[in-house]
Amino acid sequence: MNVLIHDLIAYAPQILAGLENTLLLAAIVSLTGFCGGIVVFSLTLSRSRLCRSITEGYISFFIGTPLLVHLFLMYYGLPELGLRISPLAAAAVGFTLNISAYNARHLMTAYRGLDRMELEAARAAGFTEPETFRLIVLPQALRLAVPALTNQATQNLKDTSVAFLIQYKEFFSQVQEVAATNFEFFRAYLFTGLVYLALVALIVVAARRLERRIALPGFSA
């Protein structure tokens, strides 16, 4: 144990840099995945059958295939097409495509809980479809989807640990490097787990506060 603590202190700058990279990636992809999810969700409501089919295909592909495949496609696959990007960029794009699909699915589920008559009323009042989406559909769908979206945010944080497989120096990979020098694997991984748990707990607390803050009478997810 003492060896691990000694090494953690000795390698603190490297580990903290890894933690910073983890938080950076999680923050970027949670934000881009959130925005991407809204865009994909709006496309699922398109009048064009072709657009809806393509969007459904996109969602099925990214939900139905492992995240690691998306990351490898971006980091190892794209160079074959002449496009070489940094590990952070590859991770950001791969995660965003994946998370957008999941978030769109969460919003679609929430959309099913909306009162169709409200949409009819908006149409009858003369709102355009984009206005109806922005003013009626989205505010309600987002409220209903808050628990699912915040669960997704915690998932995003945990999933960043696989980014080390495309050379992204995130927290887990840095602790692993320390463990490789002192062979204290069990304690090192336990320590990693506890750090992730603490970060997830922070997200959960923030999510509950957000849920309470935006709660309205008649709305429950």
């Binding site: 009819e120 009323a121 009858a124 003369g126 355009t128 505010p139 309205l216």
Partner: peptide
């Protein structure tokens, strides 16, 4: 159609108020 609908107020049986 949008301009036309703006000239017609529509009240529904089940109210259809925006609940948010």
């Amino acid at each position: 159609v949008r301009r036309l609908r703006q000239s017609i107020g529509f009240v529904f049986q089940h109210f259809a108020l925006y609940r948010h």
